[in-house]
Design a protein around this nucleic acid. Structure first.
Lengths: 341, 341
DNA sequence: AGGATCTGGGTAATCGATTGCCGGTGTGCG
DNA sequence: CGCACACCGGCAATCGATTACCCAGATCCT
């Protein structure tokens, strides 16, 4: 505790303290400094103390750029999301960060702003920075293929939640088909479809999740009126008005995402319709705010913690040779007030 | 268009194509390759074409780690947020990313998970990676000081939305005092405070925003019942029950954040109370979902676009010498149904 | 014509950390 | 006592891109 102050001399030289500086001060070679600091090889106790003292006095901070260049690895995972304003993606980012805390791997997030051009830039940026792992939620089912393939050929790449077609790259995501099965089970148990029609409000099939959920819906529910838009609140609101314009005054509305469901639910209520008495609304994803809407939203929850853990496992086991891993995580029905049992 | 295919030989050598490889193939020196690729000095047209062709054939991708080591700069901005699950922070991240698109600077986001230890790790990680700018929303008004000071002494550091005490580091954020003045104006214009009491549901004063909003509230409204918790939905819900337990059956509830207000609003409704008839609820931040609640939330919107632009400007003008810049952005009242005019 | 200047290419040092290899000391064993 | 070997510190090469410096040839000027 006696040597807590920073050496005044050191403050002059200031800014960049390198291993060479520490070595000079401790009177040893940079090799020894490196060994002490990284523990890569034992170093005599007296030298160890000398080096640690010098490092502390000078305020030495490792330069990860130098290390990365030499080691060829960065202990970094790059997460590329389409849009941080979408609560499902940001919560995925949050959980992934939390899962990797303590693993020695830093999670860095980049938002593509739903733009193929920026997505591409993000990939090149992460690859250029030599991230050890690239986790990507591709914007577009077909157009993102090239970028994903590019990434996969230079580093361990994992697709998350959405996948591109035509390219074999690891994928971890929810079983959308199963999710729609759960919804169908719930609906058929408590709705008389003769009296209350079922409609689907989904998202464009340009992303695999939009695509798969639509197909899941169709295969479990059969033919029903279908409205397709984008994964955002605004589309939910628009869709509410389309439904009303098309004459619906009562329906069970299955949506492709909570944000769509929430937009729809809000607009229906604003226009004086009752949920769940007139319209039942069902979401997908299980984002936090779904529980906070009024009424709370019935939804299919994707287990984000498990998704995070799966990715962590994949990294520890997967080699870049087997690109084939495809993990489908089973979702879970959460019944809320917008479509009670 | 004729030489679009990748050279088969190159694919064998695969993985890391360096400038040396490109130079060898083009029959020039690495200096020339660098000059062609970066445009740092003119190069004869024929050589230029040769180099570009070789780079394309080999699938050359610049290694940003090597570049960063040499240049000492990375064209990167590190954004450190306390929690990506908080929609205000994730929307800030999204807008900042969007603002910097096209500027040649990549925005990388790291979540501290509201934990001082992780916040510190994030800072060291960003500093080690030599980010040119570090934008940080500190977790804690006093405990984050050391970390922020550390960052500020090695790179351009800007505090966002929240600031630590005792340290002079650039700050860009909303004028919370002014925000509360707007709320007071709205409330006094349409509420008879004799008949409907005003209460404040805020967040702990451990973050500067919590602190300043509480003070702003007090200075404009005077003494009123005050409940302090955390910046999340759960606290809003709890607070609703505390209010009821304390006997309130009607009140104008001013909250410190939309997420608190939304939690509160939802819980009040679930328990059969009417908003705005019985309780008026007012938020702060202006997150997207505030417009989607039912009823929509009256709130004080922070202009995130302007905040983003301000940071971009600051980076272009600020030197690390003047750490003093303190920008307060004027917020804006958005009247919703939860507290109509 | 001869020196000054300009253009543009190559050589090699450089950024900071890591690590393969060498060698010196000390210990253990036969 | 002598040899083998473990231990541990240092030297110097290395990762990949950039750039200070040098130099050859061309052009320009008086």
């Amino acid at each position: 505790m006696g040597a807590d102050r920073i050496d005044p001399l050191a403050q002059l030289s200031a800014q960049h303290v390198t291993m060479a500086d520490v070595a000079a001060r401790a009177g040893v070679s940079t090799a020894t400094v490196s060994r002490v600091l990284s523990g890569s090889r034992p170093v005599a106790e007296d030298l160890r103390r000398l080096v640690l003292g010098a490092a502390r006095d000078l305020g030495y901070k490792v330069n990860l750029v130098g290390r990365a260049l030499r080691k060829g690895r960065t202990s970094t995972l790059g997460l590329l999301v389409p849009d941080l304003d979408n609560p499902f993606f940001s919560s995925l980012a949050q959980h992934l960060s939390r899962t990797f805390d303590g693993s020695g791997i830093d999670v860095l997030v980049f938002s593509a702003d739903d733009d193929l051009r920026i997505e591409r830039r993000g990939i090149e940026s992460f690859l250029g920075r030599q991230v050890d792992t690239l986790v990507i939620i591709p914007c577009h089912e077909s157009e993102s293929s090239v970028s994903v393939a590019l990434a996969a050929e230079s580093t361990l790449t994992i697709q998350l939640d959405r996948r591109v077609s035509d390219v074999d790259v690891h994928f971890v995501g929810c079983d959308n088909h199963e999710g729609m099965r759960l919804v169908e089970g719930h609906v058929s148990a408590c709705v008389d479809q003769k009296r209350q029609p079922v409609v689907y409000v989904g998202a464009s099939t340009e992303s695999s999740s939009g695509h798969e959920r639509l197909e899941g819906f169709r295969s479990h529910f059969g033919e029903h009126p279908t409205y397709l838009g984008t994964f955002d609140f605004g589309w939910g609101q628009d869709a509410a008005q389309r439904l009303l314009a098309d004459g619906f005054r009562s329906a069970t509305v299955v949506t492709a995402a909570d944000i769509i469901g929430l937009g729809l639910l809000g607009r229906l209520q604003s226009l004086g319709h009752r949920v769940p008495e007139d319209f039942r609304v069902i979401g997908f994803d299980g984002i936090g705010v779904a529980r906070l809407a009024h009424p709370t939203l019935t939804t299919v929850r994707q287990p984000v913690e498990e998704i995070g853990r799966t990715i962590l496992n994949l990294i520890n086991t997967a080699t870049s040779a087997d690109r084939h891993t495809l993990v489908r995580i089973a979702p879970e029905l959460v019944i809320g007030e917008s479509s009670p049992a």
